[in-house]
Every structure is written in structure tokens, then in C-alpha cells.
């Protein structure tokens, strides 16, 4: 999902940065408020960042014959709310842009938008919906993080299609082409991300049930150790 350095026309690069910036700023503000109110969340915030660090470093082979990586942003969004992951995703993407030449400074805004904004919002929304229809906790986590991963890559496809519409087929033809590269490759990886997110939530539910209850993720009756 990393759009490479210089591969978005200047107008698009600036546009996506302008869209992402206020959300990152609000994320910093809301995280600051949360940590001030609950200083004990600080460690858990580190876990959310650490999870994104690991998952976005893992290049995993996929059935399409190419490889890609999960994003790990859905997990943190479920813990801290959808905007909280925007600044954390920004840090991860900046690390990769500056040290790994993966993604870039000019494409940072677009990459933050897909991985650290769309993904987290999808995760948060799907989780709330799944819980509303009384889906079990683990299933809700899986559906939320799995679809967050897929939507991140569909967003990247749309961003590229907007910047590079097909000369004959326009946006749609171009979108289909990029989605074939990204979304198909991503299917098994999205499942992997979902499973890993359930795994870490299982650990949290066992050892830190009081935090999860406080964060409105677990109902009291489900949090029996």
C-alpha cells in the first residue's frame, strides 16, 4: 500500500496531505486527552504502536505470486478510537519513508490516509456493527481488522486510479488494474491480520480485562478471567 516516492503528481500529493493533516492533528489531541485522563493507558498505547511496527514490517508471500504486508492499524483503532491511529501510523510510515525508501515524503499524506485513517475508521465501524448484531467478541475483532486491511489497499488502488486514470477506460479501468495488484494479493494477508489481532486481543482479555471493559470493548459478563 506504500505509494512510492514521487509517484503521485504534486497536486494529488498536496491534496492528500491536506486531507490527512487535520485528522492526524485531532488524533494527537484526542490521544493526549485520553492519556491524561488514564495514565495507565500509556503502555497499551505502546502496544498498539508496536503491533503496527511488527505487522507492517512483515512481507508475506501471497497466492498472486507477489508479496505484501499487513498494516496492524485496526487493532489500535479498536483500543483507542479511529483517529488515534493516525499519528501512530504517521510515525511508522515516516520511519519507512526515511530509512527504508519505502513510501515517501511526497506520498506520506496519501499513505497516511489509506493506512492510518481509512483502515482504523473501517475497523472501528465494523466492530461496532458486529457487536450491535451480537457477534461474539473474537469474531467481531476478526471481521473488523480483516476488513480494515482490505479497505486500506482498496483505498490505495483508488488513490492511484485517481492520479493515473486509464487513457481508454478512465478511473474505473485503472482502479480494476490496481485493485487486481493490491486487493487480490491482500486477501490472505487480511485474514492473517485478522487472526493475529484476535490472538493479541485474547491475551489482553485474559490479562488486562479491566482495561478492555473500561474501553467499552468487552461486556462485563465476557470479561471473566
Amino acid at each position: 500500500m506504500h505509494i512510492m516516492e514521487g509517484f503521485l503528481p504534486a497536486g494529488h500529493a498536496i491534496g492528500w496531505s491536506l486531507v490527512s493533516a487535520p485528522i492526524v492533528a485531532y488524533g494527537v489531541y484526542s490521544l493526549g486527552k485520553k492519556v491524561k485522563k488514564h495514565p495507565e493507558y500509556r503502555m497499551l498505547l505502546g502496544v498498539a504502536a508496536a503491533f503496527t511496527f511488527i505487522l507492517s514490517a512483515l512481507k508475506i508471500p501471497s497466492v498472486t505470486g507477489s508479496s505484501s504486508h499487513p498494516t496492524g492499524t485496526g487493532f489500535g483503532a479498536l483500543l483507542f478510537g479511529p483517529t488515534a491511529m493516525a499519528p501512530i501510523g504517521l510515525v511508522v510510515l515516516l520511519f519507512q519513508a526515511l530509512l527504508l525508501a519505502h513510501g515517501g515524503i511526497t506520498t506520506l499524506g496519501a499513505n497516511v490516509f489509506s493506512m492510518a485513517i481509512v483502515g482504523p475508521f473501517v475497523a472501528y465501524g465494523v466492530f461496532r456493527l458486529a457487536r450491535m448484531v451480537r457477534s461474539p467478541f473474537g469474531m467481531a475483532i476478526f471481521l473488523a481488522t480483516c476488513s480494515a486491511n482490505l479497505m486500506t489497499y482498496l483505498t490505495t488502488s483508488a488513490q492511484l486510479a485517481l492520479a493515473f486514470p486509464d487513457p481508454a477506460g478512465g478511473f474505473v479501468a485503472s482502479f480494476v488494474k490496481f485493485a487486481a495488484i493490491f486487493a487480490l494479493t491482500q486477501l490472505p494477508l487480511a485474514i492473517i491480520e485478522g487472526l493475529l489481532s484476535v490472538l493479541i486481543f485474547n491475551a489482553l482479555a485474559r490479562f488486562n480485562p479491566q482495561e478492555l471493559r473500561q474501553m467499552n470493548l468487552l461486556q462485563a459478563r465476557e470479561a471473566q478471567p
Partner: peptide, 13 residues
Amino acid sequence: TFTGADGEAMVAI
């Protein structure tokens, strides 16, 4: 095989 999807997107561009 198993090259990065990011690079393949660059080729498509």
C-alpha cells in the same frame, strides 16, 4: 516471483 506489490503498482503506473 513474490516481489512486492508496491513495486508492481509502479510497473502498472
